[in-house]
Design a protein around this nucleic acid. Sequence first.
DNA 1: GCGTTGACTATTG
DNA 2: TCAATAGCCAACG
Length: 104
Amino acid sequence: MNGTFSQRVWELATQIPEGRVVTYGMLAERAGGGPLAARSITSILSKSPHRNVIPWHRIVYANGKVWCPPEEVQRRMKLYAREGIRITSKGYIEDFDEMLYFFE
DNA sequence: GCGTTGACTATTG
DNA sequence: TCAATAGCCAACG
């Protein structure tokens, strides 16, 4: 694997298939940080140059909630519709456990 | 080496 | 599935 925590997270994030989602905790744990290191991901990736290539729309909360900056909302809604991911008016994913993607 | 920061998580009702 | 609260981790100045 690579050196930094953020680098590993980026590798994993880019492997997420279309129509599937993962939680920050899963990425954090898979990256070697721990299930509660999800906080670090936001701080690190959001500030790294990788933030432009990261499929943020496939990374969601552990409870199935999806949040994104007001400016990116419209663009992401299109992506969700295109990938067949249903989002409720409250910003929660329908059948969250069914949409979840587990790394091998 | 310490405090701040952030696209978070677990828990409770 | 919703909403509100306390707690955790890694990178940066």
